[in-house]
Amino acid sequence: MPRSSTWEKVEPADWRSTIEELRDKGFIFFDFLTGVDQENVDGSNACEVVAHLATKDLSSSHFVSTQVFGELPSITDLIPAAQWHERECTEMFGIQFIGGSANPLLRHEYLGRPPLRKSTVLAARVLTPWPGAAEPEIKEDGRKVGNASRRRQRPPGVPENWLQT
């Protein structure tokens, strides 16, 4: 684990230049690049892209993040090792990396939606009866006459009226 790590949030326009600057400053160990869905954080359909770079001796490391709406310039010409991560990010989060590789990584057709986005609803969660929807029942003579709470509960990850839309 690096002894000191810094976090930096940049504009998408400064994404490439920040990475290039860091690389030239000696942060030549590329650890990873991944997406972080921001939907439940700020309600937008944005996705954060985070890259982690470290110095060769791992004594110092730098996290760079940027908020992305759909596309971001690729950094594969600066750091070739980032290609695999960008392709994964494209498949899992639906982020297009301009100038990056167009080869799919696993090529699974997933309803045309990126599987790691929170907005991608898993049908099994909708179709399986959620045990958490039950409430303590009010019974008379052993028969159910109502529920103790009128608040309707939905399982996590299933939007309201998802089947109807």
């Binding site: 958490g132 039950a134 303590p136 159910k144 399982p155």
Partner: peptide
């Protein structure tokens, strides 16, 4: 809270 939805509970008031 169960991520696997493996608990089923029935109760009355």
């Amino acid at each position: 809270e169960c991520p696997a939805w493996c608990i089923h509970l029935d109760s009355h008031t």
